[in-house]
Design a protein around this nucleic acid. Sequence first.
DNA 1: GCCCATTATATCGAGCCGATACATCTGAGT
DNA 2: ACTCAGATGTATCGGCTCGATATAATGGGC
Lengths: 180, 180
Amino acid sequence: MLEFAILGLLHEAPMHGYVLRKRLHETLGMFRAFSYGSLYPTLRRLLRAGWIVEEAVDPGTGWNRRAKRVYKLTAEGKERFAELLADAGPQTWDDEGFGVHLTFFSRTPADVRMRILEGRRRRVEERREGLRAALARAEEKIDRYTRELHQLGLEASEREVRWLNELIAHEQAEQNKTEN
Amino acid sequence: MLEFAILGLLHEAPMHGYVLRKRLHETLGMFRAFSYGSLYPTLRRLLRAGWIVEEAVDPGTGWNRRAKRVYKLTAEGKERFAELLADAGPQTWDDEGFGVHLTFFSRTPADVRMRILEGRRRRVEERREGLRAALARAEEKIDRYTRELHQLGLEASEREVRWLNELIAHEQAEQNKTEN
DNA sequence: GCCCATTATATCGAGCCGATACATCTGAGT
DNA sequence: ACTCAGATGTATCGGCTCGATATAATGGGC
């Protein structure tokens, strides 16, 4: 997930790890934290894989100074990102994965967009049904707070399904337009 | 989080790890997965700490058979759970922590309940304001999908704040009743 | 010239997940 | 009685991520 986000953000411009993390928080902060404790190890992993390279390392002036690294996307990194964009696996329809993927949705192929939206809809419908069943089953004996929480969750699920239906309808309309 | 949930569930009855995991999915499955990969290591941790003990290990009949373990809460484990119940730290107002804590809300002291609900409200209000700002700032240039996602998130936040306000008002009413 | 917020890199321990492997037990259909 | 699938049950592995923490240089305001 972090790999995906880093590769996506580096399309804009080469960046310091620090700046990357700030951008990460601006664009994805609503779903994910992405601390330094995951960022720097992931950057090293991407370096090893050849998806990114260090550009213009600034050695600085101090005798024991730490390097300031600027990370830049490689051609292979762009390919890798395209690969990840085209993936519509189960991890793209859970809460975090879906949020992150949607951030790069205008860059993902139309058919993949469709599969992700439909997968997400199935997922949210499952949760909705689970919550409905929980609320129906033993309406009396369940804890007041749990019932309230389930009620909130149920309404949120119902709203999201409607929201997804609208997006899907819009996608289909777009697709028909380009076909004609 | 998992430690908290295990200790809470074991109040009902001693259980196999397997059953524990099923109960975990039934009651908390909406927020958390809690796989075996975290369950068994956590159980060993709780054993080491003395919060739980193995009860009635069934050696079975086979020559190379694996033990079936039944885990039981100790007095220290109950104390530990009470301690965790009384905690209203920041981890109790993020998405996962709040959901889990709410499951045991009828067992948590009224003042702690209040602090958690208020903390959660602050947290959701922050998110709401963040999303409002994101939607206001550069209404034109942001990606269509991102805008839709932010819109959904904003509405969900607004609803949750209202939901929290009602719960908080209810808590206050209860508190006044017991005072008189 | 000083101080402090920001910029910047990095590691550590710990929790959790998904996949996988292995073994046993139960019951439904035949 | 037989068999075989599905439920019960324990366990580990590699990998990702978090939060806390340490360390320094930079830049701007006073």
